[in-house]
Computed example of a mutant assay.
Amino acid sequence: MNFQHLEYFNELAETQYMAQAAEKLGISQPTLSYAVKKLEEELGVPLLEREGRNIRLTVYGKVFKEYSEAGVRQIQEGYLAVGDLNVKICLNASR
């Protein structure tokens, strides 16, 4: 599972508009569609119902969104924690 795809899904799940999510993420709409399609293929379930320009989360999408948001948040916190630890270790090493 691709971390970036999870971030893309989270943004799309929040906005529920492909163009708005793609713009906020700084990517093209086809890139965003591809990322969500790959997640759906990997999970084996539809995460979104597409209705023209609008999208809605399926029941699967609603459940996955909770876990995806929590997972991304935890990974981001871990990234910051490792960075903070590295700074502390470097400061102690230079003394």
Rank of each mutant, 00 (worst) to 15 (best):
N2Q: 15
N2R: 15
Q4L: 08
H5G: 10
H5Q: 14
L6W: 11
E7H: 10
Y8N: 14
F9N: 04
E11K: 07
E11M: 07
A13T: 06
A13W: 13
E14I: 02
E14M: 06
E14Y: 13
T15C: 00
T15G: 00
Q16P: 02
Y17M: 05
A19D: 03
A19F: 01
A19V: 01
A19T: 02
Q20P: 00
Q20G: 00
Q20E: 11
A21I: 00
A22R: 00
K24A: 15
L25D: 08
G26F: 15
I27D: 13
I27W: 10
L32C: 11
L32S: 10
L32F: 04
L32Q: 07
L32R: 03
S33G: 05
S33E: 07
A35E: 04
K38S: 15
L39Y: 07
L39T: 06
E41P: 00
E41N: 14
E42D: 15
E42Y: 12
L43G: 03
L43C: 05
G44L: 04
G44F: 08
V45R: 08
P46S: 05
P46A: 06
P46W: 03
P46Q: 06
L47V: 12
L47I: 08
L47E: 03
L48K: 00
L48G: 01
E51S: 09
E51I: 05
E51R: 07
E51Y: 09
E51P: 00
E51H: 09
G52Y: 06
R53C: 02
N54A: 05
R56N: 12
L57K: 10
T58E: 10
T58Y: 04
Y60K: 04
Y60D: 07
Y60M: 08
G61I: 05
G61A: 02
K62F: 01
K62A: 02
K62D: 06
K62P: 03
V63N: 03
V63P: 00
V63K: 11
F64Q: 00
K65R: 12
K65D: 12
K65A: 09
E66K: 14
E66L: 12
Y67M: 04
S68K: 02
S68M: 05
E69W: 02
E69H: 07
G71S: 08
G71C: 04
G71H: 10
Q74F: 12
Q74M: 13
Q74E: 09
E77V: 03
Y79G: 01
L80Q: 14
A81T: 09
A81L: 15
V82M: 05
V82T: 12
G83Q: 09
G83F: 10
D84E: 15
D84A: 14
N86P: 00
N86L: 11
V87K: 14
K88H: 08
C90S: 07
L91E: 15
L91H: 11
L91M: 10
L91D: 13
N92I: 11
A93Y: 14
S94E: 12
S94W: 10
R95E: 11
